[in-house]
Amino acid sequence: MTTAVSFEKVSRHFGAVRAVDAVDLDIRPGEFFAMLGPSGSGKTTCLRLIAGFEQPTAGSISIFGERAEGVPPYRRNVNTVFQDYALFPHLNVLDNVAYGLMVKGVGRTERAKQAEDALKLVQLPGYGARRPSQLSGGQRQRVALARALVNKPRVLLLDEPLGALDLKLRENMQEELKLLQRALGITFVFVTHDQGEALSMADRVAVFNDGRIMQIGTPQDIYERPQTRFVADFVGSSNVLSPDFVARYSGKRRWASLRPEKIRLAEKAGQGVAGTVRARSFLGATNRFTVDAEGTRLHVITPAGQPVPEDGADVSLVWLPADLHLMDEPA
C-alpha cells in the first residue's frame, strides 16, 4: 500500500532554528491525520512542506509515491485551507471557489457548475454572488473549504481550520469536517494546538514538540499510553509522576502518567495515598481538585454529584494499578 504523504528524515532549518528536525512520518490514504503541538513546535512548517511553500533542508518528502522536493505548490495535487482563509477580496464567492478551475482553463459554465456543487457540499448554496467581506467567519471558512475541495485534491491540508471560530460553531464544524472527510475519502491533514480537537476528529495524531514528533498513534493510544512526559502533560493534562513517587507505589523507578479522572477518593482513611486538598473548582459536568500528596501535586477529576472534600481536608486517593501508565522516558 502506498502512503499518502511520507516524510523521511525531513528537516527544515531557518538559520539556527530547527523548525522541523529529522521527522519521519507516514500518512495513510484516506486518513484523517492531526498534527498536534504547541505553537512553534514545527507542525505548521510540516504542513507547509507538504503544500510546497517550504522546501526541506534535508530529507525527502513523497506524496502518493512521487518525490515532492522541488515541485512548486501549483504542480502538487494538494490543496490548503488557510488559517486566515485567504479568500480573494476582489472576487465574489463563486469566482473564489472557481479560481483553481479557472487557472486550469476549465470553461466558464463548467466551472460555475462545479463551484456551485462545491458550495452545496459545504452547505452554502446560492452564496456565489456575495463578496467574502459580506460573510461571517464560519461562512468564510466553508468557502475556503469549497475552494480547496473543488480541485479534487488527493490530500487536503487544514491549518488551524477552526481556530478563528467560536466554541459552538467550532463543535459543529468538527463534526461536519469529519463527515465530509468520510464521504469524500480524501486524506485530510490538519494542524491544531487544541488537543480536544485532535482527539475528537483524527484517526491518528502526531504530537509535535521542538520540531520533532514525540508520538504518533490513535487518539486512544496517545491519551491512554503517552510515551513521554511532554505528551502526557500536553494531551489531557495528565498527572506526570516522578520515578521516586512511582517507585513507592508500584515498585518500578519510572516516569508515569496518571489521568486525573482515574483517581478516586478512598472510602476508608489509611488506604492508598494520603494528601491534603489544596484547591477545588467546579467545571459543570465534573469537579476538579488538587491534592498535595507528600510534595507531589495530584489533579483529581470526579463526576459532578459525588461528594467533594473541603479545602484543606485530609483525603486518601486510590487508583487501579493498570491506570498508572509507566512511560518509556528514562528515569
Binding site: A51, P72, Y74, F88, V103, R147, A148
Partner: peptide
Amino acid sequence: SLIEASMDLGADGFQTFRYV
C-alpha cells in the same frame, strides 16, 4: 497568504500576478 493561496490552487507565478 493570498499569493500562497493562488499558488496552492494551481496558478503559476504569471497567473498569480495577473489574477490576484
